[in-house]
């Protein structure tokens, strides 16, 4: 194997390996990788910062949403209360109006009844008068002599009573 021809292959390869590996380490890797390391760290920070920011924004929006829901619920309650108020007010006013109307109707019914009673009494009196007149005429014709008004009135009254 040529690899074990140590006298001829060992030294030159080792020499060039040392030179080239030193150049690789100090001249290439040492110059380039730290730059990349910085960028990677920066990126990590940026990403975690962004995530934090997003979490904060989410919390804020959650709070906003909660507030909105609370506001919505209270507005709904208020509306419900107002509706109930309006309903009860309307019911009260309707009741009041209907009681008033009932009262008026009662009053006019009472007045009408009084009127009717009056009319009836006067009608009765007229009938009594007419009946008395009739009766006295009949008695005059039969007896030839008109009875006294007091007797006639008494007689008719006893009939109508």
């Amino acid at each position: 194997m040529p690899q074990f021809d140590l006298a001829n292959v060992f030294l030159p390869q080792l020499f060039w390996l040392s030179v080239l590996f030193a150049i690789l380490y100090f001249g290439v890797v040492r110059l380039t990788l730290p730059k990349l390391g910085n960028v990677m760290e920066e990126r990590e920070n940026k990403v975690s910062g962004d995530i934090e920011l997003a979490e904060k924004a989410k919390l804020a929006s959650d709070k906003l949403n909660e507030d909105y829901q609370i506001g919505l619920a209270s507005a709904r309650d208020e509306a419900r209360k107002m509706l109930a108020d309006a309903k009860s007010k309307a019911a009260a006013s309707v009741e009041k109006k209907s009681t008033n109307a009932q009262k008026k109707a009662d009053e006019s019914i009472a007045a009408a009844q009084v009127e009717i009673e009056k009319a009836r009494t006067s009608a009765m009196q007229e009938i009594e008068t007419v009946a008395a007149d009739g009766a006295s005429s009949i008695v005059e014709r039969l007896t030839g002599k008109a009875p006294s008004t007091a007797v006639v009135t008494k007689a008719t009254k006893s009939v109508f009573a």
């Binding site: 292959v9 030294l11 030159p12 390869q13 060039w16 080239l20």
Partner: peptide
């Protein structure tokens, strides 16, 4: 007395570099 020749091995290491 040391042999430090640039060989094909060194060439390919240089290419790798």
């Amino acid at each position: 007395q040391y042999d430090l020749s640039f060989t094909n091995s060194a060439l390919w290491m240089a290419l790798a570099l």
